[in-house]
Amino acid sequence: MPNPATAATPAAPATPAPAAGASRFAELPASAAHDALRIEYRWLNEPAAQRADDTPLALFLHEGLGSVSMWRDWPQRLCERLGLRGLVYSRPGYGLSTPRAPHVKWPVDFMTEQARDILPALLDALGIDARQRRRMWVIGHSDGGSIALLYAALYPEALAGAVVMAPHVFVEDLSVASIAQTKQLYETTDLRDKLARHHADVDSAFYGWNDIWLNPAFRQWRIVDTLASIRQPLLAIQGHDDNYGTMAQIDTIAARVPHAQLVKLAACGHSPHRDAPAPLDDAIAAFIAAQR
């Protein structure tokens, strides 16, 4: 989910700019699951993208209105602390990736499609093989956290573990109310201009996300039963002041995934990496170090 207050911060550049390195593009050929796609991505701590590297990989999955540039420098800083190489990318419809056509509506199971089809296709295109995937840490925020959970459940042997920040596993009234408010802000304030700094087609990004979350059919969306398939280490993080979700989200994860570890952050809203970076980074560092 977006953080309107953060999105409105004037420190962002006029156009999407890399926090480290430059954006590149992966071409995903059309398949039975998706049309041909052009995906924006960046390597972090990667001396040569095409070179096999024994350093484990951290893969970052952005929020509902995120993109490569919306992460700013947090993935880079976390990778440096953890001694990992990193990969950030913009999902279709976001950043500089293939935009959503105006008439296209995301389906109710769009996050499952991202985890099941798009992410593995991107990993294939970038030459990230099975050995590297088994050592890959998947780190997701908000919708990206849900996609990380789905990937961990669908491909339980194709990752080292997952970290999810403010994930959604079912739809809460609080989420829908906040998303409706964000739509009003987008259409009546300068939020659209602020988000346009991070998306080549800002309406593609915003309405793709907003329309599906406000679709009455989406109220029935839930991935709770899928979680039991998660086998690898899992850390779930939630802020006490999140206006897009409650502690019920990660408590539900713990009920379905007994080995999951939970972190509940005080004085933290929906974006832990912006609201509480120090305790967040400490929690992630301790969690990953314990698995090595």
Rank of each mutant, 00 (worst) to 15 (best):
L174K: 14
D109I: 04
S146T: 14
S175T: 12
A153L: 02
V171C: 08
D124T: 15
A160K: 15
A121W: 07
A177N: 13
M165D: 00
A125G: 08
V169R: 00
Y94F: 15
D190A: 09
D124V: 11
D117N: 11
M136D: 03
Y151G: 09
I128E: 07
A160L: 10
A121M: 10
A196I: 05
L126R: 06
L185H: 03
Q132C: 08
D129Y: 14
I139N: 01
I179A: 10
A148D: 00
V138S: 03
P99G: 04
G140F: 03
D109H: 13
P120G: 14
V164S: 12
I139Y: 11
L150A: 11
P102Q: 11
L195I: 14
F110H: 12
P120C: 10
L195Q: 12
L195M: 15
D124C: 12
V176K: 09
Y94L: 10
L123T: 00
V108S: 06
L119Q: 00
Q132S: 13
A153E: 03
E113D: 14
H141D: 00
V164R: 01
L174N: 08
Q114V: 12
W106I: 00
L150C: 07
S97F: 10
R133L: 13
T188C: 06
A166C: 13
A177V: 06
E113N: 15
D173V: 04
S142E: 00
A162E: 08
I147T: 09
V171I: 15
T189G: 07
Q132E: 14
A121F: 11
R197F: 09
T189L: 10
A115T: 02
A121L: 13
T189Y: 11
W137Q: 03
I118T: 07
R135P: 09
I118Q: 01
K105R: 15
L123I: 06
L96D: 05
W137I: 02
T189F: 13
Y155M: 05
K105Q: 14
L150Y: 06
W137P: 01
K194V: 00
L119F: 13
E113R: 14
A180Q: 15
D124K: 12
P107V: 09
A180Y: 02
D190Y: 01
D109K: 01
P102C: 12
A115H: 04
D173H: 10
L122T: 07
P107A: 07
H141K: 09
R116G: 04
V108W: 04
L191P: 07
Q184S: 12
A160V: 04
G145N: 01
R197E: 09
L185V: 08
S146M: 09
G127T: 11
A196F: 08
G145A: 03
A180S: 14
D124H: 15
R133T: 00
F170W: 13
F110Y: 15
E187S: 05
I147G: 04
R100T: 02
M136W: 02
Y94C: 13
L174I: 07
P156K: 03
V171Y: 14
T189E: 06
G140I: 05
R197P: 05
R197D: 11
I128P: 06
A160R: 15
A180F: 05
T98Q: 05
L191K: 04
I128K: 01
P120L: 08
T188Q: 14
S146N: 02
